[in-house]
Computed example of a mutant assay.
Amino acid sequence: MITQLTDFPDNVAAFRCTGQVTKEDYTKILAPAVLGKLQTHERVRVYYEIAEDFSGFDPAAMWEDFKVGVGHLTRWDKVAVVTDIDWIGNAVRFFSFLIPATTRLFTLAESAQARAWIST
């Protein structure tokens, strides 16, 4: 499940992932929020917090994430990924060079630092 987070600057799309993330989470929550930010801002920042109870992405959800990301590749400013899940951290480290945005990885204990970083 994806939940949209509040209390971020207007140019930040912020989300928390828990449990199993589905295509419907992307099409009903993430994509509309991100596309709304892209309509009002030239460059957008993204905050992804992945909770300890996260169990994975459905393959269709991964495809939706890819489409949103690549469809607006040059419009990302910063990406903060907050997680304690090793395989996600490793994937962020491995693939971050493909994202033309400043990308940083934070632990869940560093979520306040991540929020401050994405907001400035």
Rank of each mutant, 00 (worst) to 15 (best):
W76S: 00
A60L: 09
D77M: 04
I50L: 07
Y47N: 04
V68Q: 01
G69H: 00
V34N: 02
V44F: 00
R75A: 01
T27G: 10
F54K: 06
K37E: 09
V44H: 01
G69F: 00
A60K: 09
G69D: 03
T22A: 03
H41G: 05
E52A: 07
G71Y: 02
H41I: 06
E24D: 15
T74G: 10
I50V: 13
P32K: 12
P59D: 13
R45W: 06
D53T: 13
E64S: 01
F57R: 06
D53N: 15
F57E: 08
D58G: 13
K23H: 15
Y26H: 08
D58Q: 14
F66T: 07
D77T: 06
D65W: 03
E49I: 05
E64T: 00
K37Y: 07
A31R: 09
G71P: 07
G71A: 00
P32Y: 12
P59T: 11
D77K: 05
P32S: 13
I50A: 01
L35F: 12
W76V: 01
M62C: 08
W76M: 02
A51T: 11
A31Q: 14
F54C: 06
Q20E: 15
A51H: 08
D25L: 03
T27E: 15
Y26M: 07
K67I: 03
P32V: 15
E42V: 07
S55C: 14
H72N: 05
T27A: 09
Y26W: 09
V34I: 12
T40L: 12
Y26N: 03
V21Q: 00
E52H: 11
A60G: 11
D65L: 04
A61S: 04
G36C: 10
K67Q: 07
L38R: 01
W63H: 12
E64V: 01
E64W: 00
A33E: 14
T27M: 14
V68G: 00
M62Q: 12
R75P: 06
F54V: 08
V46K: 00
Q39H: 08
V68E: 02
I29L: 14
D53F: 10
A31D: 13
A60Y: 08
R43W: 12
Q20T: 14
R43G: 06
E49V: 06
Q39P: 15
T74I: 11
V68D: 03
H41Q: 08
D77F: 02
I29N: 10
E49P: 11
R75Y: 05
D25Q: 06
T22M: 04
E24I: 14
D58Y: 10
V21E: 00
I29P: 12
K28M: 15
V70Y: 08
G36A: 08
D53V: 10
E42I: 07
G56P: 15
V46G: 04
G69C: 03
T27H: 11
E52K: 08
Y48T: 08
Q39K: 15
W63T: 10
L38Q: 03
A60H: 11
K67F: 01
W76C: 00
V46I: 13
D65F: 02
D77H: 05
T40Y: 13
V21N: 00
K37P: 11
F66A: 03
R75E: 06
D25C: 04
E52P: 12
V68C: 04
V44E: 02
L30W: 07
I50R: 01
E49H: 05
